[in-house]
């Protein structure tokens, strides 16, 4: 996989600090599992956390807590790696686990508009985001849209082009909220993406705003 478009360093910092919303963390983790470059960035960012932890003055631990912890290790079960990671393939490991091994083609996609289908992924109640798969037919243009909120998109298959270049498998579009763009899917294959959004996406142009309720994203 040849990855040209990476996560924003600010996103990786928030991810390693643990402050990125669940939906965004999921997409970030998915890209990281495919991308050694961003993995190295994440590794370096995590060092900051270790450093800050090291700078803190300690607070006394009660005898009770200490004794209890030391006695609990007798019965603690040692951690093992999960047996067999899903086969390397069409989706990154975190997603493969979430889908329970179901192939993308076999999901119950919801058609939202001609050429556009969505599949929502579950999040915990604590999340303020939304996580979904999006499938756009070959040659289709997404309506031009600003985000009115943050959005991270990971390409799982197919490819699209917009003013930022060509986005294909493994590439991630980690865009600032004020960015507007109009992705156009290449004509040979459908493009499937994993998307995290904050608020519901608000499309910019008025025809697009008309489409929005229709397609429900």
């Amino acid at each position: 996989m040849n990855i040209d478009h990476h996560l924003d360093a600010a996103t990786i910092i928030a991810y390693t600090a643990g402050t990125l919303d669940e939906a965004f963390s999921f997409v970030a983790a998915s890209h990281l599992s495919w991308c050694p470059t961003c993995r190295e960035t994440a590794r370096q960012a995590a060092l900051i956390g270790g450093e800050f932890l090291g700078e803190l003055e300690g607070t006394k631990i009660s005898e009770g807590c200490r004794n209890q912890t030391l006695s609990m290790i007798d019965t603690a079960t040692l951690h093992r790696f999960p047996n067999s990671p899903p086969a390397r393939g069409e989706v990154p490991n975190p997603l493969a686990r979430l889908l329970g091994g179901v192939a993308l083609a076999d999901l119950k996609w919801k058609r939202k508009a001609p050429g556009l289908a969505l599949f929502d992924l579950p999040l915990s109640a604590a999340s303020h985001g939304r996580l979904f798969l999006m499938r756009i037919a070959p040659g289709k243009a997404m309506p031009e849209h600003g985000h009115g909120g943050e959005e991270i998109t990971l390409i799982l298959s197919g490819a699209y082009n917009d003013k930022f270049g060509r986005f294909a498998k493994g590439d991630v579009a980690d865009l600032d909220e004020d960015v507007e763009h109009q992705p156009i899917v290449e004509k040979d294959f459908a493009c499937v993406c994993l998307v995290a959004t904050e608020a519901p996406t608000r499309f910019k142009s008025w025809p697009a705003r008309l489409i929005q309720p229709l397609i429900g994203i």
């Binding site: 669940e22 963390s25 999921f26 983790a29 990281l32 599992s33 951690h79 790696f81 999960p82 990671p85 490991n93 975190p94 686990r97 979430l98 579950p122 999040l123 915990s124 109640a125 604590a126 999340s127």
Partner: peptide, 16 residues
């Protein structure tokens, strides 16, 4: 925080 999440993050990271 995400108690009810279908996949605890700790596992996710070990994997990744």
């Amino acid at each position: 925080i995400r108690k009810e999440a279908s996949m605890p993050l700790t596992e996710l990271i070990d994997y990744d």
